[in-house]
């Protein structure tokens, strides 16, 4: 199942289908849906996530916490709820697959 959110197609869970179609304006709208106003810190995390994802890194909360941009506690404050899931949706990258 796909739906169109702010003119871009996302999958059933709300992850952007094509990370290349992502725009900052779109990210802002999605963030607002979560009640988040994006600050410089948010943007730094989002840019880092997009960069690492394009390099093929399997993203985890721990990796964000050691990125040098933020720590885990602050990451939870920036993106309340499931910080990695919420930030990934805003960053327009696929759902992070936790390895098993």
């Amino acid at each position: 199942m796909e739906t169109i959110v702010m003119n871009l197609p996302v999958n059933a869970e709300g992850y952007l289908l094509d990370p290349n179609t992502w725009t900052r304006e779109w990210a802002q709208e999605i963030a607002q849906g979560y009640g988040i106003t994006l600050t410089d810190k948010h943007w730094a995390v989002i840019e880092w996530l997009r960069k690492k994802q394009s390099e093929g890194v399997a993203l985890t909360i721990r990796k964000v916490g050691t990125s040098g941009i933020t720590d885990i506690k602050e990451f939870y404050q920036l993106f309340p709820g499931g910080p990695l899931k919420v930030s990934s949706k805003i960053a327009g990258i696929p759902k992070p697959v936790s390895c098993i």
């Binding site: 796909e2 999958n11 059933a12 869970e13 992850y15 289908l17 696929p94 759902k95 697959v97």
Partner: peptide
């Protein structure tokens, strides 16, 4: 595998 293609499975 009876599910249709799920785009969420990466």
């Amino acid at each position: 595998n009876e599910t249709k293609k799920e785009t969420t499975l990466v």
